[in-house]
Structure formats: C-alpha cells, structure tokens
Amino acid sequence: MSSSLAHFFAWLEHSPLGVFVRSLGVWSYGVINLVHILGIILLFGSILILDLRLLGAWRQVPLAVLSRPTTTMAQIGFVLAVSSGIPMLSVKTTDYIGNPFLLIKFPAIALALLNVWLVHRSTAWRAHRTRDLLPTENRRLARGAALSLAFWLTAITAGRMIGYW
C-alpha cells in the first residue's frame, strides 16, 4: 500500500472524528456497525430489485413504477453506509494498512458510482418514465444493471472480508 494512503489513514485515526468515536463507549462500534449493515441492506436490496427488473424479471411491473422507490431507497442506504463507514474506519484506521480487501472495495464502489452516473445520463434512462423503450434502450439498461450487480457485489464481498484479513 502506498505511503500516502498510510499517511491518510494515520491522519484519519488521529482526527477529531476518530478521537470522538473511540470515546463513545463499549457498544458504540456495534451500533455504528448496525447502521452500516442497515444502509447496505437498503442500498443492495433496492438495487437488486431494480437491476433484476432491468435484466428481465417481473416484466409485468412497469419500470417507471419501480424505478423511483428503488433509487430513492438506494440513495438513503448509500448515505447511511457512508456516514457509518467513515466513523468505523476512523476507530483504528492504521489496522487496515496492508489490507488488500480495502483496495478492492473502494475502487469497486467508485466503478459502481461511475456506472450509476452513466446509466442515469443515458437516453434510455431519461426516457423510461415518459415512453416505452426501444429494444436497444432496454439492452443498454440491462448492461448497466449487470455491471451494477457485479460492482456492488464485489464491494460488499470485499467489505465483509476486510475484517477477516
């Protein structure tokens, strides 16, 4: 792991956030971890339903009906996961120096977010609430959904394995 990342980890551990989280008592890590899990449940549960629909499941449910609640819940889940994940990381950040799963998790999240951005700016996504999509547009969204599942599952798997390194 590069030394600049190691420096950043040392900085995060000694930051006011790290000091604060470490002072919160013996149950604090468990509670923050719980919020992280709830965030991931919301995020991935919503994404799974939307992505499977984009890949061809439940065709009788209109995409325009499904897309808004699933993206809203996924956004809430993502905010919960980030806002609990940074405090968890700040508790003993330097313990994670050299942990390879971190180097898989965060690039996977970056790719997942890049994919979200690309899907949301596509013609197909912009049109899906106002008209039926063309077969090529459905295929565009299906490709995005497959990438989405691959990136998020990679991020979640690598994230879970961090503690087992």
Binding site: V21, R22, G25, S28, Y29, N33, V91, K92, D95, G163
Partner: peptide
Amino acid sequence: VSLAGPHAT
C-alpha cells in the same frame, strides 16, 4: 487497553 473497535486491544 483500548475498548474501541470490534474487539478490545
């Protein structure tokens, strides 16, 4: 002893 994190150290 540190009581922070997933386990004490």
